[in-house]
Simulated scan of single mutants.
Amino acid sequence: MFKEWQRRRAVQRVQPGNGRTLKRFRWWQPFSRTLFYLPLRNDDGRQVVYAVDVNHVQRFLSENGKGKAHLYLDGKHHAESELPAAFPLRGSTIEVAPTAFGLKRCHYVTTEGAEHQLIPDRSSSEGRRAHLDREHPALSRLISYCSLILLVIPLLLLIPQLIEVVFKLPPVTQRFGTFTSPIQLPGWLNLTLTLGAAAAGWERALRLRYNWLLDSMAKG
């Protein structure tokens, strides 16, 4: 019910497009832009192509830090919405949700509730990551496991430090005494783990993978 309420609110933010032409993805945009496609057939059987375009530079420079998602229909600007976005399509919906490193969601949700991830542009970072997964699945899995490890390690190291903070609260100290974390990391190692977690968060965003606990480590 909560997700449905969020979806209805997102639909209300959709504004009509101005008909401008979709710009081709350029080689210098892999870190600044995300572009996904959705081919569909109309009721008359004619195939149309929707495209979702998100400019991450505009996201971070916007006043509210949210930015916008732009929906194109057959190469023409069809609609736009503040993120997270939900574009209605004949009862179905294209849902777009951001993370600190890209997108965690760019899916087509049918009236029956089935979800299909949109197809990334081949030249985009997401498209290159998807191509690697198709052409070199073993290497792709290895990279995925490394990303997971780079997020799990900071989480495990954080737990003793959080326990130490809790034991400093007067009611807890009075009843259980104090606790000192056995893990005291040097500054260079903290920096290394932070950079590793950020790289892992970006890699996961390329695959539209997200877990609120693990990926919060990537944001620091």
Rank of each mutant, 00 (worst) to 15 (best):
L157H: 10
V172R: 03
E95M: 09
P98M: 09
A69D: 09
E82Y: 09
S32K: 00
P182C: 07
T180K: 10
G19M: 04
H131T: 06
T173Q: 13
H70R: 12
R129E: 15
R24N: 10
K104Y: 04
Q117A: 12
P171D: 05
G187T: 09
A10I: 02
L83F: 02
F176T: 03
R41L: 10
R20E: 14
K68I: 03
S32A: 08
E63P: 01
A85S: 14
E82M: 14
L150F: 13
L71G: 01
F60K: 06
Q174F: 10
P186H: 05
N42H: 06
G196S: 08
A218H: 04
V11G: 00
L61D: 00
V172H: 04
H116W: 07
L139W: 12
E95C: 07
A10T: 02
L206C: 13
D53G: 03
A100L: 12
R7Y: 03
L38C: 05
S140V: 05
V172D: 01
L155W: 15
R129G: 00
L213A: 14
Y37F: 15
T180C: 01
L195G: 12
P154V: 08
G67P: 01
R26M: 06
A69I: 02
K104L: 07
S144T: 14
K168A: 13
F179N: 03
Q29Y: 03
I153L: 15
R59H: 05
N190Q: 15
L151I: 02
R26S: 11
S125L: 14
R105M: 14
R129M: 13
L195F: 14
H56T: 08
S216R: 15
L213S: 04
N190G: 08
R8V: 07
L61A: 07
G220S: 09
L151E: 02
R134F: 09
L158S: 15
S81T: 04
T192Y: 12
L162T: 14
P39F: 05
A198C: 03
R13G: 08
H56L: 15
Q58T: 07
T93E: 11
A51F: 03
K219M: 13
Y37R: 00
L40M: 12
S181C: 14
G91D: 04
S125I: 02
R24V: 10
Q174T: 04
L151C: 00
F31D: 11
L22Q: 02
L157Q: 08
V166G: 05
L169D: 02
E112N: 11
R20P: 00
W28Q: 11
T180W: 04
P154Q: 04
H131Y: 10
K66M: 12
G177V: 02
Q174G: 13
R9M: 12
V172S: 01
A218M: 07
H78W: 15
Q184R: 14
G127S: 05
E80H: 11
P170R: 01
R20D: 12
G65F: 06
H116K: 13
A197M: 06
N211A: 11
P171Q: 01
G201I: 08
G45W: 08
Y108T: 09
L206W: 00
D74H: 03
G196Y: 10
V166N: 01
F2N: 06
Q47M: 12
P182R: 02
G201P: 00
P182T: 05
W202P: 00
T110A: 13
